[in-house]
Amino acid sequence: MTTYLSVWKLRFLTGLQYRTAALAGLATQLFFGFIFIMIYVAFYSQSTVNPSISLQQLAAYVWLQQIFLTFVMLWFRDNELFQLITSGNIAYELCRPCGIYSFWYAKLLAQRLSSAALRCVPILIVAVLIPAPYRLTLPPSPLALLLFIVTLLLGLLLIVSISMMIYISVFWTMSPTGSTLMIAVTGEFFSGMVIPVPLMPVWMQYITYALPFRWTSDFPFRVYSGQIPETEALWGILIQLLWLALMLTVGKWWLNKALRQVVVQGG
Results as ranks from 00 to 15, higher is better:
5 L>K: 14
5 L>M: 06
7 V>G: 06
11 R>S: 07
14 T>E: 11
15 G>W: 03
15 G>R: 00
21 A>M: 08
22 A>R: 04
23 L>V: 06
23 L>E: 12
27 A>C: 09
32 F>T: 11
34 F>N: 03
36 F>H: 14
37 I>R: 05
37 I>Y: 07
39 I>W: 09
39 I>G: 11
45 S>Y: 06
47 S>I: 11
50 N>L: 08
51 P>F: 02
51 P>V: 02
55 L>A: 04
59 A>Y: 03
60 A>C: 03
61 Y>Q: 03
70 T>W: 13
71 F>H: 10
72 V>D: 09
73 M>I: 09
77 R>N: 10
81 L>D: 07
81 L>H: 07
82 F>L: 13
83 Q>F: 14
85 I>Y: 02
86 T>D: 07
93 E>G: 09
95 C>S: 15
95 C>K: 14
97 P>N: 10
102 S>R: 05
102 S>G: 13
102 S>I: 08
109 L>S: 12
112 R>I: 02
119 R>H: 11
119 R>G: 07
120 C>F: 11
125 I>D: 03
129 L>G: 11
130 I>V: 09
133 P>L: 02
133 P>C: 04
141 S>M: 05
141 S>L: 05
142 P>N: 07
143 L>C: 06
144 A>M: 04
148 F>C: 00
149 I>P: 13
151 T>W: 05
153 L>R: 15
155 G>R: 02
157 L>Q: 02
159 I>T: 12
159 I>V: 13
160 V>Q: 08
163 S>Q: 14
164 M>N: 01
165 M>K: 14
165 M>A: 14
166 I>D: 11
166 I>V: 13
166 I>G: 15
167 Y>E: 07
167 Y>A: 06
172 W>N: 09
182 M>N: 09
188 E>V: 11
189 F>G: 15
192 G>S: 06
193 M>E: 13
193 M>C: 13
193 M>H: 13
193 M>F: 14
198 P>S: 01
206 Y>G: 07
210 A>G: 02
212 P>T: 06
213 F>C: 01
216 T>I: 01
219 F>A: 00
222 R>G: 00
223 V>Q: 00
224 Y>P: 03
225 S>T: 00
228 I>A: 01
230 E>D: 05
236 G>S: 01
238 L>P: 05
239 I>C: 13
242 L>D: 12
245 A>I: 06
246 L>Y: 12
254 W>C: 09
255 L>R: 03
256 N>L: 11
258 A>I: 05
259 L>S: 02
265 Q>K: 05
266 G>K: 04
